[in-house]
Structures are given as structure tokens and as C-alpha cells.
Amino acid sequence: MSVFLIADIKVTDEAWVPEYATKVHEIVHRHGGKYLSRSGNVATVEGDALDTSLVALLQFPTRKALDEFAADPDYAPYAKARQAGSVSRFHVIDDTDLAGTIPYLPKA
């Protein structure tokens, strides 16, 4: 079952961004993941706007693959730099339909 990582990030110190942006996608790919978007073009359509610099949407083939990426020792220094230079909120969702009424999505 695919899972999606939604990373909502407010950059507070841009020093970490260039190296993170050029290196982390290689680690993501090594764990079967891929970026679907990594954008600073964030617009709020409904509700209160978040103080967000960028949102990244990543897809992994399984939750295990995502967890292995997050625990990868090669990722650790990049995660530490991001955490020191941002306020980050990471959310994981799967590809199911909670209501079970969309025929092309697995029922939750």
C-alpha cells in the first residue's frame, strides 16, 4: 500500500536548504520513494493560512520504506540540519478512502 509524506516546512535559517535540496532526493529514491512536488507556491484555499515556506509531497511504496528512509544514517545529518533551521510538520497518509465510497481507492 502506497503512503504519502506531506512535509510542511517554515524555513527559519536557509543555510541547510541547498545541500538538502540536492542530496536528499537520492536517499528518498534509494528507499523506493519519489517526490511528487516540492514547491514554495503554497496558497490557502480554505481556512487559516499556515506560516509555510514550502510543502513537499513524497510517495513511498510502503510505510516500511518511508520509515527506513527516515531512519537511514545517511539522512540523519540532513534531518538534523532541517530541524535546526526550520519548523517542520511531517504527516503520513496512506492511499485508502476512509468512507469507502471511491471505487478506485482501497477501503480504509
Results as ranks from 00 to 15, higher is better:
S2I: 11
V3G: 12
V3H: 09
F4Q: 07
F4Y: 15
F4S: 11
L5R: 06
L5I: 11
I9A: 01
K10S: 03
T12I: 01
A15V: 03
A15I: 00
W16Q: 02
W16P: 01
P18E: 03
E19R: 06
E19Y: 11
E19F: 02
E19W: 05
T22F: 01
T22K: 11
T22N: 03
T22M: 13
K23R: 13
K23H: 12
K23M: 14
V24R: 05
V24N: 02
H25L: 08
H25Y: 12
E26P: 09
E26A: 12
I27Q: 01
I27D: 08
I27Y: 10
V28G: 00
H29S: 14
H29M: 15
H31K: 00
G32K: 07
G32E: 05
G32Y: 09
K34S: 11
Y35D: 12
Y35E: 11
Y35F: 13
S37I: 11
R38K: 08
R38N: 12
S39L: 06
G40I: 03
V42I: 14
A43L: 15
A43G: 07
A43F: 08
V45E: 14
V45R: 14
E46N: 05
G47Y: 14
G47Q: 08
G47M: 13
D48Y: 07
D48S: 09
A49K: 14
L50K: 10
L50C: 13
L50Y: 15
D51S: 04
T52M: 07
T52N: 10
L54F: 13
L54A: 10
V55M: 03
V55Q: 09
V55S: 01
A56H: 10
A56C: 15
A56T: 04
L57Y: 11
L58C: 13
F60S: 12
F60N: 02
F60D: 07
T62F: 01
R63K: 15
R63D: 12
R63M: 14
A65F: 08
A65M: 04
E68P: 03
E68Q: 10
E68S: 03
F69I: 02
F69Q: 00
A70H: 09
A71Q: 07
D72H: 07
D72W: 02
P73L: 04
Y75W: 04
Y75K: 01
Y75V: 09
A76I: 03
P77M: 05
P77K: 06
P77T: 05
Y78I: 06
A79L: 14
A79C: 11
K80S: 13
A81D: 12
A81Q: 09
R82S: 00
R82F: 00
R82M: 00
Q83I: 10
Q83T: 12
A84F: 00
A84W: 02
A84E: 08
G85Q: 01
S86I: 05
V87P: 12
S88F: 01
F90R: 02
F90C: 04
H91E: 13
H91D: 15
H91V: 14
I93V: 14
I93A: 12
I93H: 00
I93P: 13
D94H: 13
D94Q: 03
D94F: 12
D95P: 06
D95H: 05
D95R: 07
D95C: 11
L98R: 04
A99F: 10
G100P: 03
G100N: 08
G100M: 02
T101E: 07
T101Y: 05
I102V: 15
P103C: 00
L105V: 01
L105N: 06
P106C: 09
P106R: 15
A108V: 09
A108G: 15
